[in-house]
């Protein structure tokens, strides 16, 4: 019998499925070049969202706010034993009781930074 029955035909289809044509490197490169050329650009973030992400989102911002509040609090109402630096700078007074400067004159000490130099 010489009929090409369904089983034989299926044998040919199976051979075709098992041996797919190879895609050339050139075709792949052409397709990827098209993809690159037509790829939509990622949408730009608004500045406030970029800043939000830069600061680390809610967790980063809450940490930053806490640290800033603690810094202000220590500056305004320093714990006992710490010099009241903010008060001294604002009032321009530097009591010997706070820091023992010995013989050193406070004004001269400030002058060490050149802040009191007068133009000649």
């Amino acid at each position: 019998m010489n009929d090409f029955d369904d089983d034989a035909l299926e044998g040919l289809f199976a051979a075709a499925r098992a041996n797919p044509p190879q895609v050339s490197a050139d075709l792949q490169a052409r397709v990827l070049a098209d993809a690159q050329a037509h790829m939509p650009k990622a949408p730009r973030q608004p500045w406030h969202r970029a800043l939000w992400q830069l600061l680390g989102g809610p967790a980063g911002l809450s940490g930053l706010a806490t640290a800033a509040a603690v810094g202000v609090w220590i500056g305004v109402a320093p714990p006992e034993g710490l010099p009241d630096l903010a008060g001294q700078v604002v009032s321009n007074s530097w009591p010997d009781a706070t820091i023992d400067l010995g013989e050193t004159d406070t004004a001269a000490d400030w002058g060490g930074y050149g802040w009191d130099m007068e133009e000649s």
């Binding site: 009929d3 034989a8 035909l9």
Partner: peptide, 15 residues
């Protein structure tokens, strides 16, 4: 149509 076309080659194709 494929079967008719290929019937002559059945043996040659190892079936």
């Amino acid at each position: 149509a494929l079967a008719a076309q290929l019937s002559a080659q059945r043996d040659a194709l190892g079936f």
